[in-house]
Write a protein that binds this DNA or RNA. Structure first.
Lengths: 234, 234, 234, 234
DNA sequence: ATATAATCGAGACGGTACGTCAAGTCTTGTT
DNA sequence: AACAAGACTTGACGTACCGTCTCGATTATAT
């Protein structure tokens, strides 16, 4: 994308006043916190920030874009996870971080609101995908692919789908609220998708054993005993 | 919801005109189809149906409630699946039905829009949970619980979570669009959550075994042949 | 202009709330007085009157229309002149009334502002013509035509033009302010257009004297000097 | 307007670039022609001329001032009438010139728009008076005063008022549009104000008396020949 | 040559008003 | 009582022009 203007290096005109930009972003974040996505309006941001509507319209193409930028003043987009090399542990660590963000801060509902808004604003949807979802998924994909390379995870599976099966439930619960985002959810989701759901014992009794000599099943989840029954919901 | 009024049996005044109700619902459904959740408005429904705004406000508590009712004039809420007793097959059948609904009809985006709207309308959220999500989940829960009872599925797992790990990815893709809803998605999701993701001991012949001392095998994922890697998305 | 609706006599819906109408008009008048045509804005009227902008836009097609209506809450459109039958006296009476209105009240500048606004609003221009100018001119025309009928005024002249030559100077001064609207202006304008400007004495020197005994010439119009014949033309 | 600075002869800094001045004026004139007074805006002139808004604001105190200057790029302010000494003829010549300008060129409406704008811009009003109205009136005043000196026009009359009674109707029609600016208007206006409107006694001798018992003759306006009724307006 | 000073284009910015849309609430008369 | 028609307030939308304000680049005279 080469710059088409005559003198791209020559900066002409009054330079953008960064204080205004910051005030707008701060106002947007504040308004999101106070009023949520529902009460979010460009006029509200203008009021809060002291900027004029025209200025906002100049720099942000749409309400959604502004809201997303405001959202990012609330969340630092840091995804710094030190990997251990253990699939389960690494995934749980990362998922737990996201989960904690949704549970313990106000940004859970706000992100939900943004995704809701994205249903009527395709550009916002794209922005959310690119700026929020994908970066986070990259880490997960890296973990899974490393595990595949190390031979811990079946290589024929699409890492993307595996991640969806971990994050999907979280976002689904965030968006429709049919079940709570409990603390142990991250661990449970990861463990289940890793080991699967089928009984080892039942295989033995009901089906012809395909191979009888196999030891190992899921390395380190032996005592899965304690029921996560609290995950039920009215 | 029993009628709470003093004399429920004494009906005075003009009785409710059901034709109006139907016209409103038809108009709501039509408007949803034509304009989507974004262009859906009570005034639009009034225009289309010939009913007056007051009438609509009288019988539907909110825009969301009307939209959901309109939505149900488009989708028959039938979930009639004949179960075979095979967990995988039954789940795939059911999930495929939902998936086809989202893929092939207009109701995928409309439902997404409704869930989006629900972010700013808690009552709509509750209604969606109760009227759409839960009925569908009951079937799935029944399948899983039957499998647990039959000893095919590990009894320590929460069926709810298992279902979330199947449906979550679908709704996530529907809402965020980071990956397409492919045809084989249902089968892949079900198979993966059933069998898990880790390498089996049988792989030990192929790869260096990490630990050697357990039994369980869960055969039946050998011919996972067709790569679901097409699920990637731009 | 027959009413085209199905049942023109059946009044349906909530009737227009006249109190709102009155409040808007009062607000418009007040705003005109306070801020003049320059500071007049629909939003200002909405603020002052307590009515909403939408309501104002519903009933008044444009800012100009509202301003003109507001103007009429300041001026009662009464043009009640008892005619005596004497052209000069009747005209002076009427013109003086208008002049006094322009001089002594605030409506002079306001009307000027409206005419100014009419330069960019053809509908306002038409409304001013029909509702302000013409009614007033009718009276003048009536006086002139009566005088023509009575033989006091030359019948070959267009009464419209005569009135323009009386009122034109007043509006011109009102609009461009190059000369003041003095008290005696009405009398002077009327007298001059009635008697003309040419000297009788000059006629005497250049032409065969028609009459010789005048000490003053234009006081009464009994024997007025004849128009120079050069003025005739096809 | 002498230069008030300390050292008026010492010119320092970059001298004013006259090409900019000309471009702005040309742009202003062009915009007036294209969009009229209504669509005239400083930003538009800046766009058209390539000058920056600041430059325009520096050299022209207000939008009206710029518009007037732009107006003068469209009209050459020449008022070159060779006088014959005959009041009527000279006045008609001059008035006809103005009338033709208003009728046949675009500057009639533009001038009307400027006068309209002047209602909200006192400085523009003053400028119009000084730069447009007065110069033109000077000529007329000269003619009238010459006629007064020659004894053709009554010396007790204010030439200003006489001119107002000629030009007033023209501007009134230009601004309000209640009657058209016809070709013969100039001659009619001049003739009427010169001769007056009242019936002359001399007509009694020139025409066959219709009825003998009154002092005026033309009972009804028998041969109104060319009807001036066309001067009426919708 | 090197300040000093003005001109000028580009463009950012707050402000006021524009005209429109839909949400809800209300007030009629009609069924 | 149910209902249609429609008046009304509220709040936000996105746009236009105003007038002011930095910037950097340019172009002259004065030291």
């Amino acid at each position: 994308m080469a710059d088409m203007r005559a003198n791209p290096d020559v900066k002409r005109g009054r330079p953008r006043q960064l204080s205004v930009r910051d005030a707008v972003l701060a106002g947007a974040g504040q308004l999101l916190l106070q009023a949520g996505t529902k009460g979010f309006s460009i006029e509200g941001v203008a009021r809060l920030s002291g900027a004029s509507k025209v200025t906002i319209y100049k720099w942000w193409p749409s309400k959604g874009a502004l809201a997303l930028d405001g959202f990012y003043t609330l969340v630092s987009p840091s995804i710094d996870t030190t990997l251990t090399g253990d699939v389960e542990q690494d995934l749980v660590t990362q998922v737990s971080a996201v989960l904690a963000l949704f549970r313990d801060t106000a940004i859970g509902p706000i992100l939900a609101g943004l995704i809701g808004e994205a249903q009527r604003d395709p550009e916002l949807a794209a922005a959310i995908r690119e700026r929020w979802l994908e970066p986070r998924r990259q880490c997960g994909v890296a973990i899974v692919e490393a595990a595949q390379a190390a031979g811990h995870v079946r290589p024929d599976l699409d890492p993307t789908m595996i991640l969806d099966q971990i994050y999907g439930p979280i976002y689904l619960r965030l968006l429709v609220g049919h079940a709570p985002l409990t603390d142990d959810l991250a661990a449970a989701l990861v463990r289940t998708i890793l080991s699967g759901v089928l009984c080892r014992a039942s295989d033995a009794s009901e089906r012809p054993a395909r191979s009888t000599h196999h030891e190992h099943n899921w390395t380190r989840r032996d005592e899965l005993a304690k029921a996560p029954s609290a995950a039920r919901h009215s």
